[in-house]
Simulated scan of single mutants.
Amino acid sequence: MLGGIFIIMAFYLLGECIAWLLNGFVPGSVLGMMLLFGALSLRWVSPDRVRPVARFLCNNMAFFFLPAGVGIITSMDVLSRYWDIVLVVGTVTTLLVLVVVATLQQWQENRRHSGVK
């Protein structure tokens, strides 16, 4: 399990370093997840090494939403002023994520059924 923690933290650190080089254009945690996904897809990292840590993090994901919830509560004055923009942006980005994820999932399913690895 310690090896899995090290792998996940190494990719997080690598993502943060790249984000620093890009002046924070993309968050480091997102870059780290993308890099870890690429390493898992290319089989540079064994899924069995990170699976126990990933399960633990997913099972306790509610704790990661606490800081975001506190941030929303402390920003209620800004949100109440721009609620319409926040609502439109939230709706559009949610729909965009749904379409992209559905398209990628369909592509992966088609690849799996055609026998391509």
Rank of each mutant, 00 (worst) to 15 (best):
L79R: 01
F64D: 12
L96Y: 06
Q105G: 03
E109G: 02
L79C: 08
T91N: 06
I72G: 05
V86I: 07
R55N: 05
N110L: 10
A54P: 00
N59M: 02
L96S: 08
G71Y: 12
S46A: 15
T103L: 11
R43D: 06
M76G: 05
V89I: 02
L79E: 09
Q105E: 12
P47C: 06
P52Y: 10
V88L: 06
L98Y: 09
A102S: 03
V50C: 00
R49W: 01
S46K: 04
I72H: 06
T103H: 04
N110T: 11
G71M: 07
F64Y: 15
P47A: 13
L104E: 12
V50H: 00
F64T: 07
R51C: 07
L104I: 07
F65T: 05
Y82D: 09
V100Y: 12
A62E: 15
A68G: 00
N110P: 02
W83P: 00
V89G: 01
F63G: 01
Q106R: 15
W107I: 06
V89L: 06
L87V: 04
R49D: 05
R55H: 11
V45G: 00
V101D: 05
F63Y: 09
V86C: 11
T94I: 07
V45A: 00
D48Y: 08
A54H: 04
F65E: 03
T91W: 07
L95N: 11
L79I: 11
A102G: 07
A102Q: 10
L98C: 09
T94W: 13
R81K: 02
G71S: 08
A62S: 07
D77T: 06
G69F: 07
N110D: 15
R81V: 04
L95G: 04
V97I: 09
D48T: 15
F56Q: 02
V99D: 01
V101I: 05
V97G: 11
V89C: 03
